[in-house]
Nucleic acid binder design. Structure first.
Lengths: 390, 390
DNA sequence: TTGTAGGCGTTATCAT
DNA sequence: ATGATAACGCCTACAA
């Protein structure tokens, strides 16, 4: 069955197509006056025919597709899905739809997926790091998008990912890591392991380098044996943890690069008949919802946070299990701009002092000191989206 | 910067717009012959200008947006994420994009989200149950979509969700549940609890009714106290499990409606200082990836499956923890149609004997015996998508 | 082998 | 206050 078109409505209501357009778009309120009688006639015709504007034609005509592309790595990490869910919800609030793409590092056509997405005339793009962006072709695609002045926001903590000059939302776990390490070293831990399970080279450097520096400041040797590099899946961290636990002088504490992998580590510890926190301490990052339901609890929030439940049960050797909440507050915020009306000012839930209103807030967060000129209003909104869930 | 258009390419190459269209669409192979020389000139112009066809215009002209809508409930259940990831991957393989929408039962504008999605001239729709579909407005939207002959596939096990006549992919946990119950009753379990945590009324009836029937067949009373209805979050099942464990005559085994909630239950059991499987048996459904990393393992696969690790460690009172894998093989398949070439025949991974090739396979899976007339080729593909991850 | 022309459903700019 | 008309960028008969 063919859908009714604007022309059908116009015919039925006995008006022109333009009038129909005015009425359905409610332009009548401001500029173009439409008599109430005509308005009602049009509305009646719309209802009778079940007319809905064709968003394809709208997109073609208006230039805007009301669509934001979202690219996430397809790894099984709830953290990314939380991001996706958050982005979708926020986008929906401002009338945008999400065009979802996942990119698996394995799939050979990942570049094409990326390229395809860019051809769909999306109004904006949010992406999460993946090594695919380092490829020639991906770089070119990104450059194309930038040339079109499409707002792009990366949710990534690592500058080496992309050479291009795009806005980013950066979570920095450095301070949190320093805090953990100080604590552990105070508790006389001397063998601290690090499960470095990454999908992208250099990802999570913030945690690893802070780990190294802490040891060095304490005049302790950074034992390469204790840094277990592995892949990004639970199985990877499970195996890596098993390896660490088999060392002659096994670690008494373990930092794991994110909560998902911490789950794998927990399982490995249990399979070795060790207990957390009695025999070994365990730390994760992200505070995924699951964390507090693990046994033992991979609990939540920052070390110094008042509601850090775990820290109340400290023993000399162990700090129980802690999952560091997403370190949004420690992200480097270059410039504070008070919320501009109309551009999606919103509070980051849980951090009432931090609001997002303008692209400049996070522009070049970690790179240069002056924000690049970027005036597309959607950029602010997209950064808001990205930040709201980062 | 304005993007180059077909006309720009035509001008640069010194040909007409039609020729450009032929070349970029590779129609030359079949019908319309283009001289190799012209072809190269056009291609060169395309490359020089960085021309890409405008998918908005393509959509308007061709009628197809190459887009499939996906609606999932926004609850924090990895099971749905897995679905979304699977759908996205499969869609991408056949050149489709996913327009993602999540619908939270709480949000008041959920209906609008649904409606919005339907206006975007999507080529198909995949949706997961949510009570929102029961509303008047949602029903109307669905009816509109059906009137447009848009292929719609529901991934839902419950017929009462929607009164409309749409294709569904049905997972039926009934047999699996009967199997578990038989086993537990054989092991002399007499107090078996059921954590019925649902987001939608009547969801998961298959499990609950099989649970009831099993008890009745064994001449046991169905104790309403042992059926804990609650919400769909881990916290809900955590609380519900605590309640069950406080009963004077507490259950010795627990069925939980899905793995996510089983995690919450596991935590509650641990908080009551009980151990699985020594003190209580625990069962979940879905086999989410996380399941096998839980301590103790919420292990995997069907009871009778050869690789059911847990069943080898049976004790009298307990069957360890078992997560029933998605019950695809027990879904009611009305009619088997051998794979039709070109319509995305594919094997369901892990179940080599079950392939998806035609809408008729799952049509009216649980309702009537004759499939409805539904000839849109995309339906088959979409059912394939949906089934591949259900 | 290539070019011409019409139309997809909107919106915006002019007239009326 | 409303109507005609011209784009938007592309595809596809059909004509040359």
């Amino acid at each position: 069955m063919k859908l009714p078109t604007q022309a059908d409505v116009a015919r039925l209501a006995g008006v022109s197509r333009a009038t129909v357009s005015y009425v359905v778009n409610d332009q009548a309120g401001g500029q173009i006056p439409i008599s109430e009688e005509t308005r009602q006639r049009v509305l009646a015709a719309v209802a009778e025919l079940g007319y809905v504007p064709d968003s394809r034609a709208q997109a073609l005509r208006s230039g805007s597709t009301k669509t934001i592309g979202l690219i996430i790595p397809d790894i099984q990490n709830p953290h990314f899905w939380e991001m996706a869910a958050g982005v979708e919800q926020e986008a929906s609030k401002i009338g945008y739809h999400i065009l979802l793409s996942s990119i698996s590092p394995k799939s050979r056509d990942a570049e094409d997926v990326f390229e395809n997405l860019s051809y769909r005339r999306i109004d904006g793009l949010i992406m999460v790091p993946s090594f695919i962006y380092q490829s020639q072709k991906a770089q070119k695609t990104l450059a194309d998008l930038l040339r079109q002045r499409i707002p792009i926001v990366g949710m990534m903590s690592n500058l080496s990912q992309i050479n291009l000059d795009i806005d980013r939302v950066v979570s920095d776990y450095r301070d949190a890591t320093l805090e953990i390490m100080t604590h552990l070293l105070d508790l006389q831990h001397r063998r601290i392991g690090f499960i470095y399970g990454i999908a992208v080279p250099n990802l999570g450097e913030d945690r690893l380098s802070a780990y190294r520096e802490s040891l060095q400041s304490a005049n302790l040797r950074v034992d390469p044996e204790l840094i277990a590099s592995c892949g990004p899946t639970m199985e990877d961290s499970y195996q890596a943890t098993l390896r660490l636990l088999q060392l002659p002088d096994r670690p008494t504490a373990l930092l794991v690069i994110n909560d998902l992998l911490a789950v794998g580590a927990l399982r490995a510890i249990s399979d070795r008949n060790l207990r957390v926190p009695h025999d070994i301490s365990l730390f994760g990052y992200d505070d995924i919802p699951l964390a507090q339901y693990m046994v033992p609890r991979l609990s939540t929030t920052r070390l110094t946070s008042p509601n850090c439940r775990a820290s109340s049960a400290l023993s000399l050797r162990s700090l129980s299990t802690i999952s560091i909440a997403t370190a949004l507050p420690t992200a480097r915020v270059r410039r504070w701009v008070p919320p501009a009306p109309g551009i999606m000012p919103r509070l980051i839930s849980g951090w009432p002092n931090l609001a997002v209103s303008d692209a400049t807030i996070m522009s070049h967060a970690m790179a240069s000191s002056q924000p690049p000129p970027r005036h597309h209003p959607l950029t602010a909104a997209i950064i808001g989206l990205a930040m709201a869930v980062s």
